[in-house]
Design a binder for these strands. Structure first.
Lengths: 214, 214
DNA sequence: TAGATTGTTAATCGATTAACAATC
DNA sequence: TAGATTGTTAATCGATTAACAATC
């Protein structure tokens, strides 16, 4: 079951393929060639074919790719053919925003718990999900088969909570706190560092002008 | 002024260096060698030295790097030595979350305007910033020297609003809508595609187990 | 001065692109 | 069948790592 290792670069591109194929489906496009997809996505056709062939031959010579089939297959590769129970730890603005984002449920990510340290928020509900005190997190995680925890809490608390969650059985951490979590290598950590993203904007604003001159 | 082109990989690492140096400063660490920093950050010392030397020689043989000096210099490289006016278009949960995030102001990103199409939100204030109707966006952008616009609105509206903003003079777009914006190459677009980030979690949850066996 | 560590060149590794034979 | 386009190998390009002379 462990063929060649798939590179991170490839994995990062898969969700974007998936998105484009979904849009093609919405527009009732039945087939597409790597060349046409490459033009829409502004990547090379070669890269698309190489990327897909890491996982199998999904196309047909002389025809191209069936959009719906490829969409489904990439969905399976991404693990979107099942459901995930997600808890959100930190029910501030960002935690609430994530809880309200219905697009995640469409992809199988079900928010089942919302936790906060602030007693004032307790009892409040977001899309039917009650905010619970973080004291109840252990009990909840152990009894609800939680796959993924989104950490939308202050930086100082993130590493401790993450370690606890892992101890209680959570294997995926979606970390929004501006810090690195040092967890065992079998735990999946995906960081969303918004401040760093914003710094890339300022860097590029400073350096974009002269790119004209090249 | 246009020396060698800096690779995207390097640029993406700069904010992380900046964060680690900031933490070292908080802990009153005065100097650090590339070797020690590499151990903390889990990258190679060679990469740190290569990355930094794209911008100049910030260290000293036999000594290492002065933490505060390097922090300041990387800050300058990232364009953090000035202020940026930011507007947020879309005052839903995510837009509100960004408006509330005080860390951005510490780095010089000042949220000066918050806009929405929903008349119910108008008049509401977040950290002193009043939510305005999106109809006022053109007038506001043209008169307030807006550097960056965060787009936290539905996918369908994002490309149109982005094109308008660019027309009105905004040069940096921080896009949270799950779509690609095709804008002129002198415009800085930084995408934060949360759904894609979450899909990488599910991909890795599916594929992480057997990495033990390697 | 001797020791430490940078700045930088050279070697290696990996990812992207190009090319084309296979085949639908 | 002829044309189109994949799957895949080979060539190129770029990024990372290793090595070491320069030098503080």
């Amino acid at each position: 079951m462990n063929e060649k290792e798939i590179s991170l670069a490839v994995i990062k591109r898969l969700p974007r393929y998936y998105r484009y194929l979904g849009e093609l489906m919405e527009n009732d496009v039945v087939r597409i060639s790597s060349k046409e997809l490459s033009e829409r996505m502004k990547v090379t056709a070669s890269q698309i074919r190489q990327d897909l062939n890491n996982f199998g031959g999904f196309g047909q010579q002389g025809y191209g790719y069936n959009v719906e089939y490829l969409y489904t297959e990439i969905g399976k590769i991404l693990g979107l053919d099942r459901r995930y129970n997600v808890v959100i730890v930190g029910a501030g603005n960002l935690g609430q925003a994530l809880a309200n984002y219905t697009d995640f449920e469409k992809r199988g990510f079900m928010v089942t718990g919302l936790f906060d340290v602030n007693p004032r928020l307790i009892g409040m509900t977001i899309r039917g999900i009650e905010v619970r005190l973080v004291d109840e997190l252990e009990e909840f995680v152990k009894s609800h088969n939680v796959d993924i925890a989104a950490l939308t809490l202050p930086k100082a608390k993130a590493p401790g909570v993450a370690a606890d969650l892992v101890k209680w059985g959570v294997r995926g951490i979606w970390n929004f706190a501006p810090t690195d979590l040092n967890l065992p290598s079998d735990i999946v950590v995906e960081n969303v560092h918004l401040a760093e993203s914003l710094m890339r904007v300022s860097y590029n604003l400073k350096n974009r002008e002269w790119e004209h001159e090249i």
